[in-house]
């Protein structure tokens, strides 16, 4: 594993035991390598195992076989304290529904990982949260209850929280799945900015429009990695429509 690789999966397997005692194999030996600063979209049909792959490589779920190396360390061997520390300092997570702690305000939710990391003063953590909220246009809801804001606003808050400790990797599972097209575009714009600033992004999506913003798309079918398609770095000169068209053509060409 060379220095440019941030995450590497080898022969990754994941199976579940059903209540009938039968075992279902979700991931059937996946090999994957993600470079630092890359923006990777994982696509596939429902049930193909794309979310499971994301959770396995991020250490949120146990693997049944194979290994996952993160920054040269095998994730599976880390203790709870160690993996928590990795999540806190160098990983960020964004989900389809923005899961926030309901007892805390938007700003507090965003600040929490910074407070926990303790790398900056509490005042600085509050300041960082404010800057991030301003950047994504939600500073006016800082002191709101999480039940008082819209889904789009909440998702932006979730992104702010995921980025507050400047993680090396951002994991996203259908981050725009519950949003309208306008909010989707705004969120993806933020993703591209974050990636441009050096954060690696690994994102699961079934939306071609969203996947078209990634550098690379990998396609999963029946628990196996079928193909990958390189779209190249996002740049403003290229229109979203053309990237989207290219990706769509590739998907069709491969019968996906």
């Amino acid at each position: 594993m060379n220095d440019t690789v941030i995450l590497q999966a080898k022969s990754l397997q994941k199976s579940y035991q059903l209540s009938t005692g039968e075992s279902v194999e979700i991931l059937k030996g996946i090999d994957l390598e993600i470079q630092k600063g890359e923006f990777v979209a994982i696509m596939g049909q429902s049930g193909s195992g794309k979310s499971t792959l994301l959770y396995c490589i991020s250490g949120m779920d146990q693997v049944s076989g194979g290994s996952v190396m993160y920054n040269g360390k095998e994730i599976q061997t880390l203790s709870d304290d160690e993996i928590s520390q990795v999540r806190l300092l160098s990983m960020g997570f964004v989900f389809q529904h923005s899961y926030m702690l309901k007892d805390f305000t938007i700003k507090e939710n965003i600040m929490l990982p910074a407070l926990k990391a303790g790398k900056v003063s509490k005042e600085q953590a509050a300041q960082n949260a404010r800057i991030r909220m301003e950047r994504v246009g939600i500073s006016h809801i800082a002191d709101s209850d999480i039940t008082q804001v819209s889904g789009g606003q909440l998702q932006r808050a979730a992104i702010c929280r995921a980025l507050i400790n400047q993680p090396a990797v951002l994991f996203a599972d259908e981050p725009t799945g519950a949003l309208n097209s306008r909010s989707t575009a705004e969120i993806m714009e933020i993703f591209n900015q974050v990636n441009a600033a050096g954060t690696t992004i690994i994102m699961v999506t079934h939306d071609v429009k969203v996947a078209a913003r990634a550098d690379k798309v990998i396609y999963l079918e029946d628990g196996q990695l079928r193909q990958e398609y390189r779209l190249g770095k996002w740049n403003d000169a290229e229109t979203l429509q053309s990237r989207e068209a290219n990706l769509f053509a590739w998907l069709q060409q491969n019968g996906f």
Partner: peptide, 16 residues
């Protein structure tokens, strides 16, 4: 349970 899981995802350990 859900709130605890969210905390863990954001980097809080079981010990915390």
């Amino acid at each position: 349970r859900k709130q605890t899981a969210i905390q863990r995802v954001t980097g809080f350990s079981v010990r915390d």
